[in-house]
Design a protein around this nucleic acid. Structure first.
Lengths: 348, 348
DNA sequence: CTTGGCTGACATAACGTTTACATCCTTAAC
DNA sequence: GTTAAGGATGTAAACGTTATGTCAGCCAAG
């Protein structure tokens, strides 16, 4: 052969080859591979030497077929490029790895169709458990598929009619707090840009927003409430629309990390100065809020902890815990910075 | 049973149950499942109905055992929270999915030990191919493990002694360009913070840096060259050290996205103003560069394209292409913004 | 009416493990 | 010296597929 296929072609050694090399039966090799007792130290050493020599790695498929376990956890996220979900993965991984599970992340790019594909692939691969963040609670196919899973599933921050453990983040209260602050500063027209009503964070943020205004006795101008898609593009478009409208808000809440980027970019493009021309509040990306000038007030939450908690719930189920679905609610905090100020008196 | 284990416990139906339900043999079910011809339309319909009824999903492990294919590609990245790698995953996914492959991402958190664990897991799972970004070219265990893979591997932006296809990014030239610009502006002391010599990007950036200075006949002050760890912490620490030293640079190149964040944060904390007190250049996060004030000059590259190219190389190998390792070099661009200016005349 | 060709379906042998069971060999106790 | 106990190892079935070989039926041609 003149051209070698890079790192390809080599067949993986099987338990039989190891057995032959060590001069024992495959049963013995299997016992050594899975750290069973009942094997003589001398034999064990010989087998281990053969395994090392051949570079033997047990075939997970064959193993899975016998044991009905894959030691694999699937993690479905709407968007891999979003740091928020990446941090959750990090937290989950930290809990799962020591238990011998591998976490494989899959990004759906916010497409319910891709989510269904993933769930089917996960079922085909007989993954032992799942952590999922759906991009649309109202997509029935996804929920249906989730019901068929047959393995423990932990849902993140969504309300769906499925028997599963859930980790929630607090969204209502922090928005209420921030809107309260803005009202105190004198703002009366506050814009909210967030995710759609089809996912819990979107709904809750709108709820918090309304509550704060109602408590202050201020009617909600529906034009100022933009609950649509969770994306930078949406954030930019809505911010632009709000700020160039006939009666623009004096403050904007960009609730969602992507929306935060997009809205901030739109503000920059319009040449508005924060907080002189506009008060601005972001969410879920404390670092960005810190790096820009002026530093921006941000609603933040510990996503790594979300991942840890989710993995914890999953581990319990994998260990056979049998009880009704559990719910964990994790808090959010408001990091106050200098992006909020009293509104400039109307000059029009 | 009083408490039901959420979404757990349900055994998955097998091909036998589908066969029984449809009143055919398992062979026929298998042929329907894999879209073989040679099955009567009426029979096909009956089998499909049974599959839908039972929610049948073929067991991937059993399938893999027979076919020696898992339709799974592993993607090893140093850090999931880094957008750079997430974008690569996105690009790769876009190419792989239409070919029927699933991409599973795994983050090593820059630990060679975790990388070895992943490679072994990938081999156990008999993944069909791999895209890998190692965190240290000099870690021998990783390379050794890579050699044993037996399936096509595409390496991203690393020089390692393995027969594999590689996708490179251009790092020397953009640094040279930027340093050239800074020299033109009058800078003579320029600090470089980047990754260590153990990975190609770190080495190349230092090379570009030296070349630009040499061409201008300026000796390199080694104190100004900080090629260490690719992390925000390192970026912050080195920037702080440089800027508080006895003879600080008048310009800083923060070459690497994490380093960019960290260094920028350090500059903020020191209360320095860009570009008046300091010229500043970032890398790999064009969006951040755009959002901060003033907008920051950034060395950028199209990571989604990197992913696409890598997946393309992999697909070719999976289709049986047999030729010596291929190398693809992708360009980088410099996005000029207002963070570079003439150095302030020395007042000391 | 037989034969040959063809189609659709079935039966069955792998694939590489794990594990219950069988077997062999020591060693110790009677 | 026989036997029982027990530890170490071997044997073989099963897991859920795919693919190969086989066979039954049917139609057309001789």
């Amino acid at each position: 052969m003149s051209a070698k296929m890079p790192t390809g072609g080599r067949r993986q050694p099987t338990i039989h080859e190891v057995a032959a090399a060590a001069g024992v039966s495959i049963g013995t090799v299997s016992r050594v591979a899975s750290d069973s007792p009942r094997v003589a130290p001398e034999t064990r050493a010989r087998v281990q030497a053969a395994m090392a020599e051949l570079g033997y790695q047990p075939n997970a498929a064959a193993r899975a077929m016998r044991t009905n376990q894959t030691k694999t956890i699937g993690f479905l996220i709407p968007d891999m490029t979003n740091q928020v979900f990446a941090r959750v993965a990090q937290g989950a991984e930290a809990v799962l790895a020591p238990e011998g599970y591998m976490l494989f992340a899959f990004s759906s790019n916010r497409s319910p169709a891709r989510e269904i594909e993933f769930l089917q692939a996960a079922r085909q691969r007989r993954m032992d458990g799942l952590i999922v963040t759906l991009s649309d609670e109202t997509a029935t196919g996804t929920v249906e598929e989730l019901r068929r899973m047959g393995v423990p599933v932990v849902v993140l921050d969504r309300d769906i009619p499925v028997e599963a453990d859930i980790v929630y983040s607090e969204h209502i209260q922090p928005i209420e707090t921030v809107v309260g602050q803005l009202l105190l500063l004198g703002h009366r027209r506050i814009g909210l840009i967030t995710a759609s009503h089809n996912i819990r964070p979107g709904r809750d943020r709108v709820t918090g927003f309304r509550r704060a205004l109602e408590r202050a006795g201020i009617p909600v101008d529906e034009w100022l409430v933009r609950a649509r898609i969770q994306s930078a593009e949406h954030g930019a478009a809505e911010a632009h629309d709000l700020l160039t409208g006939p009666n623009p808000p004096t403050a904007i809440l960009a609730a969602g990390s992507d929306i935060f980027y997009g809205a901030l970019k739109a503000v920059r493009l319009l040449g508005l100065s924060i907080p002189d021309d506009l008060s601005f509040v972001g969410a879920d990306d404390a670092l960005l809020g810190e790096l820009v000038y002026p530093p921006i007030t941000v609603i933040d939450r510990d996503m790594v902890e979300v991942g840890r908690q989710a993995a914890g719930l999953l581990i319990d189920r994998l260990k056979g815990l049998d009880m009704p679905p559990r719910r964990i609610m994790l808090g959010s905090s408001v990091i106050l910075r200098s992006s909020m100020a009293a509104p400039r008196p109307r000059t029009g």
